[in-house]
Design a protein around this nucleic acid. Structure first.
Lengths: 140, 140
DNA sequence: AGAAATTTGTCCGTATGTATC
DNA sequence: AGATACATACGGACAAATTTC
């Protein structure tokens, strides 16, 4: 069989289809996706293509895959406006180390405001973001 | 050929090697990586495995791939949209201090990927943002 | 507790499509 | 137009983690 992929690659089309099933509720949040074997049968695509489609969902934060277990639809992904239960936000005053001091052009030990946001997904820390600003600095 | 991957998968080992070449300067920032074909020959791995290794570098923000062109090592300086020049983005591998180690549930000293964005406005550093993620090296 | 079945992870080789040089 | 380089897709094989019996 040739491999004609005009506009949309096969794996993206499959990813879209799966995404739609998730958003429509056909596949409930927190549930397992069909196995790779089942999806290869349904879409009559190779396993590699199916895995690529699932990788798209993972990259978009919609699913999480576990070895030997399967791929879950992430329970609480979208629509987390303010007060996300899974994010932790901390604001504290800290002091500049050598590197930060050099960047800001201040003395090491001088005060800075540190803003830290910890993002978790399924209990695991996914990313830690820290912003540093000078004290009493007004936005423009 | 069998597939003996004891501790570390082949594609991760290759990714580490490439990462090291980048950090050591053997492959300069902004330069093109060797082509997939060249890497296939050098590491005697299949093209799929090479592409998996390069994907790791992309996920860590170290490289960018362009169809038909090649894979670039991301340079320190990133493009700025119109208006606000003078942003500087740095990606480096660092080690977890006590606090970060506790957050991620890893050992202090374990490697992390740090993205740092320094925003200046008329020569003055306005804000420093640092994000920390697990290296694509350790699975868990 | 142990063995088998299930499911995802890694790797190979090949072929063809598409973008860039 | 031709050569080069990345993108997509197939099929097969074995490894490793989990679940089931």
């Amino acid at each position: 069989m040739p491999t004609p992929h005009f506009g949309q690659p096969r794996y993206r089309a499959i990813a879209s289809e799966l995404r739609q099933r998730i958003e429509s509720g056909a596949i409930p949040l927190g549930a397992l996706l069909p196995t790779e074997g089942a999806l290869t049968a349904e879409f009559r695509a190779s396993r590699g293509t199916i895995r690529q489609a699932i990788a798209v969902l993972r990259e978009d934060g919609l699913a999480t895959t576990e070895h030997g277990r399967g791929t879950y639809v992430n329970a609480h992904t979208r629509f987390h406006r303010s007060g996300t239960p899974d994010d932790l936000e901390t604001i504290r005053e800290t002091v500049a180390d050598e590197k930060l001091a050099a960047l800001f052009g201040i003395e090491p030990g001088a005060p800075l405001v540190e803003h830290e946001i910890v993002t978790r997904r399924s209990g695991e820390v996914k990313v830690v973001v820290r912003t540093y600003r000078l004290l009493n600095q007004q936005q423009r």
